[in-house]
Every structure is written in structure tokens, then in C-alpha cells.
Amino acid sequence: MKFRNFFKILNNGVQLHYCTQPQPIQKITEKIGFIGDGNMAKAICFSVEKHNIIDFSQVYVSSPYRANLNIWKEKGANISIHNYEVARNADVIFLAVKPHFLKNALDGILENNNVDDIKNKLFISILAGYTLEDLEQFLKPFKESRIIRVMPNTPVLVGEGCTVYCPGKNVTQNDLSIVKTLMEVTGLCFEVEERFIDPIAAVCASGPAYTYLFIEALSDGGVRMGLHREMATMLAAQTVLGAGKMVLSTNKHMGTLKDDVCSAGGTTIAGIHALEKGGVRGSVIDAVQSATNRAAELRKAK
């Protein structure tokens, strides 16, 4: 049993709700495929399996590099260097290649003489830069297939991820149920309009990298002032984790939480002053803007 939290989309924004009763973990029977074996594919699959939603025997994964598949094989997944094998055997197929490799990956499937075997599939795209319209066009040769665009982040691996999804045409309630069952156990998961995907990706999908940079800098500061690295990193990481939980659990504005820590004339406000002089706030906003704009550039480039 697990307590799940979820978002409900309201007309005036997104409101966080918490289930008050434990929800039973629902195991799914569909075969799950990954075209692409990178870090995000591993994070999703390994987390979902850890929560007993699937077994590795249900998993099919492909990569052009056989050596990359060894870790999957050791865990009991079905592996292949041919994307067609994943597309033929799996019911739910994650498109998890780098965006610029998508066309080649799908072309490799279409070149197979038995492509008519691939129908009535649910495709889940985790690719930046490809809209639902783009993806539906790519998947036209696969009869009765549906597409859901999903944007997760790497902390799904440890059950603290943030995932949003947007369904394409002809997606069924069962398709949505599969996505929610797979992704809710990895952290927050909610549906959004497609126009929000790029800025959400800039905050959530790219955000862990910004946060790691901050944690490293906070650790560096501790080392600069005499702490051992291991202690400084542990304290910095736990501080960021705790601060995030304070934001989610107290319902207080971040400015209020900051003010609660800043005593008049004290040490914390002196540190805040230094951060503001360094332009930290503006730099983070610029990072989100740059990542969002880059997604648009990727669309144009393809």
C-alpha cells in the first residue's frame, strides 16, 4: 500500500491534492518496451519495477550498442539491437532515443517486411522538441496506434520525480490509466495542455541539473570554510531536500519561508545579500527561459 499525491488541473491553475487513504499498488500486465536505453529509460523502468508495477520479464529494450544492454539483460529484460523486436513484442512502447535519432529509429522498424505486425500499440514519447502532431505523423504507418507525450525527470529513479503528460488523438481511458499507473509511483504525475510542456521541461526535466549545480556550490562553500567534502555534500543535499518538502507541505510562499530563516541583522540575511548581488535569482530565471527557447529551436531544426 502507498499514499499517492496527485494534481488536479483547475481553471485558475494547478492545485495539489493529497489522498487521505492508502491506495493499492496496481500491477500491470502489458509488455513494456523501450526504444533507447539511456538514463531516462533506466530511471523510469528501474523505479517502476522497484515498486512492483512490472517485472523485468515484461520489459523489451533495444539499443544499437549491445554492450549498453548488459545491465538490462542482467536484470532479466528482453534485449535486442533491433528496434523492430521491441515494437513487435511490446504493448506499450517508450520512445526514449535522442530526439535527432527518432526518424532513424522508426525508419529501421518500417524497413522490416513484417511491419504489419505492429498495430494497436500505445507509444509514449519522452522526447523534447516533438509535438503530438509531429509524433502522430511519424506513427501513421503503425495502424491503430496512439501516442501520449510524457515529460519526466531523472529523480523518478528514487521515487521523487515530476512527470507531466499530454494525450494525443484516439488515446483511451485505459491508455491514460497505464501511464498514470506507471508514473505515479515515481513521484508527482499530472496531465497538462501541450503548450505547457516546454516550460515545464525547463523547470522539471532540466531543473535537477540546476539543483545539482547549486548543491555542489553549497558544498564547495562548506569546504571553503573548513568542512570535509563528504560532510558538506551530505548537509547541502539534505538541506535542499528538506527545503523542497517545506514548500510542498506547508503551503507557504517561498518568500515567507525564506523570511522565516532570516533573523534581523543575522547570518542568513548576509548570505542572501551576497546571493542577490551575484544575480542568482536572475540567472535561474534566464536558465529556464533558455531551456524553453532551446526546445523551440530543436523543433525548427528537425
Rank of each mutant, 00 (worst) to 15 (best):
residue 7 F to T: 03
residue 9 I to W: 13
residue 18 Y to K: 14
residue 20 T to S: 13
residue 20 T to M: 14
residue 29 T to D: 15
residue 38 G to N: 02
residue 40 M to Y: 10
residue 42 K to S: 09
residue 42 K to H: 04
residue 46 F to A: 08
residue 47 S to F: 01
residue 53 I to P: 07
residue 54 I to N: 05
residue 61 V to I: 06
residue 67 A to N: 15
residue 70 N to W: 15
residue 79 I to W: 03
residue 92 V to Y: 10
residue 93 I to H: 09
residue 95 L to C: 04
residue 98 K to F: 10
residue 99 P to A: 05
residue 120 N to R: 10
residue 125 S to G: 03
residue 129 G to A: 12
residue 133 E to Y: 00
residue 136 E to K: 10
residue 137 Q to G: 10
residue 144 E to I: 07
residue 144 E to S: 13
residue 145 S to H: 07
residue 147 I to V: 14
residue 153 N to R: 03
residue 154 T to H: 05
residue 162 C to E: 00
residue 164 V to Q: 05
residue 164 V to C: 03
residue 169 K to V: 02
residue 170 N to M: 04
residue 170 N to D: 06
residue 174 N to H: 15
residue 175 D to K: 03
residue 178 I to Q: 12
residue 179 V to W: 05
residue 188 L to M: 04
residue 188 L to S: 03
residue 190 F to W: 13
residue 190 F to G: 10
residue 192 V to Y: 07
residue 198 D to Y: 01
residue 200 I to C: 00
residue 206 S to A: 09
residue 220 D to T: 04
residue 237 A to P: 01
residue 240 V to I: 11
residue 240 V to A: 04
residue 245 K to S: 02
residue 245 K to V: 11
residue 252 K to C: 04
residue 253 H to E: 06
residue 254 M to D: 09
residue 255 G to S: 12
residue 266 G to W: 07
residue 266 G to S: 02
residue 279 G to F: 08
residue 289 Q to E: 12
residue 302 K to Y: 13
